[in-house]
Design a protein around this nucleic acid. Structure first.
Lengths: 332, 332
DNA sequence: CAGATCAATGCATACGTATTCCAAACGCGT
DNA sequence: ACGCGTTTGGAATACGTATGCATTGATCTG
């Protein structure tokens, strides 16, 4: 039923070895036979079996990308450029969406079916990296890393971004400031909070626990946090959100709460997703180059696979930029 | 470097064949040896090579899912349940995002590396289905199909949904009605338009070309269409959009145009994405069960793979339901 | 107790490709 | 005509797993 290189060989009147060579442009086959084989392959509609090739070459040209939840708008915006860049580098992408570390590890990543892995879901507790290391599977962190030296990672200057926002809020005269940060077991959560706190402290502004919420980088986190923050004795005049998705949750919750943004409340996000620029939001946020973040990760991973990467690890850090839109205002 | 079943066999003191059988719970191996092999495999951290297994069994337990653009919010909401259902059925998902049919076909789908394919991008001109047929690769259409009998497809009652909206708009007193439909070479575009038109006609309401736009199911389509529709001599009082993403583009454009929704303009979507319920939108739309749409497609594909499906094709059609929210109003 | 039945395991091979090693053929200079 | 290098292609094998078939030893049956 399925056509193999042997069938092509028979039709072309050559050996299977020659077929393999001809189709891979091996210089040891003459132009004439190459053409003959080409035509035979064409006629039979031959497509090399990838399993056979994998077994023989021990490489799959396939890369796994692990994300938690695709319906979180952040991930598609990183997966898409990742796909394109990997494709350009001659690899195919295998998307794996899993909640739990364990499920991922289970025979998925370690069965030699992937040449490498992009981890976009790392937490500081994740055991997955160690498993990959043990098995010799090359991997890179994307966006989040473990913060350990020796990592291969493409990340954003989270601390710098957090500082940026703190500076702006201080300058705008805000003093009762709240933060809805990501989980402290992610570097994106931790470092954005860190930078934000440090810069606030330098400006002499406190950040009491009553005005701090931490949670997953999801819509609901922002949506559910705002009412809680507003219920405090001294409700905040500004909220820094761990990312845009959380900020958008806050903006929607603000409507329910009857708050006007930015008159009653300043809201700042992080990432600058395309959505942030929609008229309904016009979200003031911190921009970094998501596309480049993904591209860098792809290139780094391929370098690691081919052995060109620095054996001591490489951490590529992208700069951040403040993007003023319509959800921040000077305190009057 | 990598551990094979031979290594396990040596350690357990049995043959490679017995290892294979023991780990696959073959009843022809005694409980004692099974346990012995298990322990050896555990000790060596053995994971079966998927390439070897594929070559031997001629099955990959892997299914390709083809979408055009993940950053379009519609797709993540269908890909996520698809992933989960396929996983539950014992298959893994390979996500393929491609603009062009040709790029997809190129050695990606036909190299025996996939047991089946889910097509979420079909157009009526697509040549991909024919190629898959020729190679004997089982596939199903998801959401869009070709409309041909003999298809295996999980779709929505698009015509019915279109009718539903036309009925509501007519009842609300709207007469100058516009439509921003999907591409006519997609069944989702074509059939929603068809149902809408038919029901409008039955209500004695015309739909002149000046109030019709067709385009991709994207944000920009809605965003760019609205100004054009408004520039007409008799601008519409209501717009039916091909899907929610388009409708959201329209809602944002309405803000730019200074229109109040629904006072100045009624806007209706299709799909009922979670986003439609956000406070900033409160989009009136047509609901269908996206999760079930994906699940059905997964199950149908697996049935087709295992040969249990009706050889004459199967088209599973999900019902639609009108969801009134805050973007429609009676014409005063 | 001989012969038949059955459970448990090993042997050998298939799957499809890439590649190493070899052999043949050819060209060319002498 | 011979030797030598070069080009071209074939034979054989490796990759790792699954499985049909053969083999062994044990248990059962009459």
């Amino acid at each position: 039923m399925t056509i193999t290189s042997h069938d092509v060989a028979r039709l072309a009147g050559v050996s299977q070895a020659t077929v393999s060579r001809a189709l891979r442009d091996d210089h040891r086959v003459s132009a004439a036979t190459r053409e003959k084989v080409r035509r035979a392959a064409q006629a039979l509609n031959y497509v090399p079996s990838e399993a056979g090739r994998t077994l023989s070459t021990r490489s799959t040209r396939r890369i796994g990308v692990i994300v938690t939840d695709l319906t979180n708008p952040f991930y598609p915006h990183v997966v898409a450029p990742l796909h394109d860049e990997l494709q350009a580098l001659g690899y195919r992408m295998m998307l794996i969406t899993e909640r739990s570390d364990e499920a991922v590890a289970g025979e998925n990543l370690l069965d030699q079916s992937l040449d490498g892995v992009v981890l976009a879901t790392a937490t500081t507790e994740s055991r997955l990296p160690a498993q990959l290391d043990r098995r010799g599977v090359p991997y890179v962190f994307l966006n989040r890393d473990t913060g350990q030296p020796g990592d291969y990672a493409s990340v954003v200057d989270n601390e710098g971004g957090g500082r940026l926002v703190a500076g702006v809020l201080a300058e705008l005269g805000h003093r009762r400031i709240a933060g809805i940060f990501g989980s402290p077991n992610t570097t994106t959560g931790r470092d954005r909070e860190l930078g934000f706190r440090l810069a606030l402290a330098e400006a002499g502004i406190g950040l009491p626990d009553s005005r701090v919420v931490r949670g997953a980088f999801e819509y609901d986190t922002g949506y559910e946090a705002l009412p809680r923050l507003l219920a405090a004795d001294e409700p905040p005049t500004a909220v820094f959100c761990g990312n845009d998705v959380v900020a958008i949750g806050v903006l929607n919750a603000a409507i329910t709460a009857g708050l006007r943004v930015p008159d009653d409340l300043t809201v700042i996000g992080f990432d600058d997703l395309p959505m942030a620029d929609w008229e309904v939001f016009r979200l003031t946020t911190v921009r970094h180059d998501l596309r480049e973040l993904a591209r860098q990760a792809a290139r780094l991973l391929v370098r690691r696979i081919t052995g060109e990467a620095d054996p001591a690890g490489e951490r590529l850090i992208l700069p951040t930029e403040f993007v003023p839109r319509a959800t921040h205002a000077r305190l009057t």
